[in-house]
Each structure stands twice: as C-alpha cells, then as structure tokens.
Amino acid sequence: MSATAPTGSECKVQAINFSFSYAYGETKALHSLNLAIRPGSLLTIMGPTGSGKTTFLRALNRLNDRVAGTGHTGQLLLDGKDVYGQEVDVAELRRRVGMVFALPTPLPLSIYENVAYGPRKKGIRSRAKLDTIVEKALKTAVIFEEVKDRLHSSAQRLSGGQQQRLALARVLAVDPEVILLDEPTSGLDPLSTLRIEETLRQLRSDFTIVLVTHDPLQAARIKSDVAFFYLGELVEIGPATEIFTRPQDRRTEDYITGKFG
C-alpha cells in the first residue's frame, strides 16, 4: 500500500471519504472512497461494469454535472483543492483535467484544427505558436509520423486507432496536468491497443494519468499502480506486481483470474 498512499501535499488527486450517487440518491455509485494519486504517476483502475470506476473519472472533471440528480459527499481534491468547491471554474478544471473517451470523437475539422481547437480556446492566436503546439502534441501522442503529410485533411477519415491517438493529442495540446482515459482501447484492435499503451507508458512521468479499464490483462501489461474497484468500493490498491502476484483480497483474486467480470 505504501507506494500509492502518499499523504498531504504530495498528492495530485486525493479522494477523502468520497461518495457519489445518481438518481437523487437512489443509486449509490461510490462508497466512501479513499484514494491518493501522486503527481507524475499512472494509476490503472480496473473493475467490472458497475464498479464505479467511470463515475470516479467523471467526477474528477465534473462531467457528471450534466446528469440530473447526482450528489456527492466527502471530498475530491486536485492539488489539495476540492473540485466541487464553490470557486471552481468548471471549464478551467476540464482544461487542467483532460479526458479521452472509449469512442474517439474527432471534430468535423481537419487533423490540425482538431488539435489546435483547445489551444485556440485558451486564446493562443499566433500561427507559429499553434504550429509548434500541434506538432508537439501529435508527436507525444505518437501519431505525427502517420499524419504529417495530411494535417489539413479531415480527421474523420483516420482509422479508429489513429482517431484515438488524435484524441489524446487533442487533450495534450491543452497542456493538462491530469489525463483521464475511460477505456480508451475498448474499440480498438490489439495492435492499436498496444500502441496506445506504449504511448501511455512514455507519458506517465510528465503527467498524472488515470486509466480506467475493464480488462485486467491491460492493467497487467501497463505495469503501473493498480486499483481494483468493485460495486462502488475500492477493494485493493498497489503496484501491479503486488496485485497480480499476491492479491490481498479474495475478490481481487477472483477478478484477475477471470472468475467474474
């Protein structure tokens, strides 16, 4: 546990007794979650459907606000400040906490404009500056080589795997502090999946990354810290080597050995 239980100021993200519910309290999705994520680390959250892993992600950038009847108790801190605090500017929060979805959704624009959209929103107008940002983001997302000759053609003609890496580039271009990925490879072929995983491993030191997956094998491949969520509870958290070789909890063992989920 020690590896992922930092305290106080060294946490990038910290949940303290954080509970979350839908449907005006009818459905409890997270129960008193306590969890801390260090800056510059990658946490893989695995768990079956309904485990609350996606709810946790969508609380972090407050996308859950859009659903009527949600509620929470406890605290969810980013850099020690509650993301549900009164003074929080949600748009600003979402620029700091980027998100990649299961289904890649390129804007109906060119590849270049897709990546430049976020920086433009932030008020960057200079063409040269945008060029630099776009190229850097595409390179970091390991897609630049594939698209450099057609930056100005439609992003919707890219393959699924390319679109997903473009989505990552789009997030990177806004220069976020935290990157959330919600089953980013669930619609991809094995090869594209490996490329995304490889990209994430390269990015982990520069950002704080939270990856949600229902696939224990993916968690094992990435070899990061792993948290196992089950029915809205954090069952176990620790380095992948620990979780996959010596799970402390029976439920974790059942999940990684494929007994359920």
Binding site: N61, L63, R66, A91, E92, R94, R95, G98, M99, F101, A102, L103, T105, L107, P108, L109, Y117, G118, K121, K122, A167, R170, V171, V174
Partner: peptide, 27 residues
C-alpha cells in the same frame, strides 16, 4: 447524436453552446 460527442468537447473546456455549434449540429 451520441452524448460522448458533446462530452468530448466539454472535456476540452468548451461551453455547452460551443459543443453544440462545433459537434452536435454538424452531426
């Protein structure tokens, strides 16, 4: 239009109207 289209925009820090204009209406 799948909700994820809107959310993709909102997650970038867009406002609701920007998401509608850029993604939802074209789709």
């Amino acid at each position: 239009v799948p909700p994820v289209y809107r959310e993709g925009m909102l997650a970038l820090g867009s406002t609701d109207w920007q998401a509608v204009k850029m993604v939802v209406l074209p789709a």
